[in-house]
Amino acid sequence: MTSVGTRPVRPAPRAGGTPRAGRGRALLARLDVKASPYAFVAPFFVVFLVFGGYPLVYTLWVSLHDWGLASGTRKWAGFGNYGYLFGDEQFWHALENTVGIFLLSTVPQMLLALLLANTLNRRMRAATVFRIGVVAPLITSMAAVAIVFGQLFDTDYGFVNWLLQSHIDWHTGRAWSWTAIAVMVDWRWTGYNALIFLASMQAIPKDLYEAAAIDGASRIRQFWQITVPLLRPTILFTLIISTIGGLQMFTEPVLFGSGTSNKMDGGATHQFQTLTMYMYDNAFGHDRYGYGAAIAWALFLLIIVFSLLNFLFVRRAGGTR
């Protein structure tokens, strides 16, 4: 902090001052050009270092120990935690769950959000009401969401089973629980992504559509050949944000698992335990803070890998522009 705290700058000397003052002024001007951009972006980096960089390094340090918060153990373990992690079936199981739920939720979510945005982009009555309406799920209290979805996906009395005329046990099966959680995630986040898409759609010049319409292109063709290609940078952005969010999926599966005595278990056979739940459970539930930190770092690296994959995928599909 203090390194940024330069002395207050004296008022610039009037023109025609001594040569010395002139030199000072030139120096100040140069400093202004060279340094002030950094000063302007500094707050972000300072905040990042305090709240992002420091925890990152500290977590790495913790992960190299046998560290227990409740028992007070603190022993150097080197890469012991990482060694265990590679052979830990439950970790890989949780990774499968996380990626599975992520794919099940993100793919339909992106498509739905695009269609929704496209619909909202047309001329319609009370457009603002609808536009605000799509983000309403985001501000709904999570406790209410948990209760409502718990009832929707109840095995015996649930609405979804009634609708499907089935008797699916949504909680015990792996695929069914993933599906139910994906529905919860999509319900919350589709509108948010739609709003981002909508903002970017409104920046597309109208004459492109007019020209296409004159050439006889249908609405659907316009959507796939004008809207989607021009939206590519936005799609990449939302994909990366969804990836980061999806791999850190926590709230929805925890709420979905409120029937288990330990909510972090993700069901009796860990059928919907995500990586962040496994991390939290180790660090704070089972007094293995060091191992929890190792999982956190593994997750961090995974997110980087997945984001790069996304980036490459979208670029391959036609550039980011």
Binding site: M1, T2, V4, V9, P43
Partner: peptide, 21 residues
Amino acid sequence: MRANRLRAVTVLAAAGVLAAA
């Protein structure tokens, strides 16, 4: 303009020091 910008930098920096304190 330029003087204004400088002043802004100073204010920002001072605010940072203050917050730290």
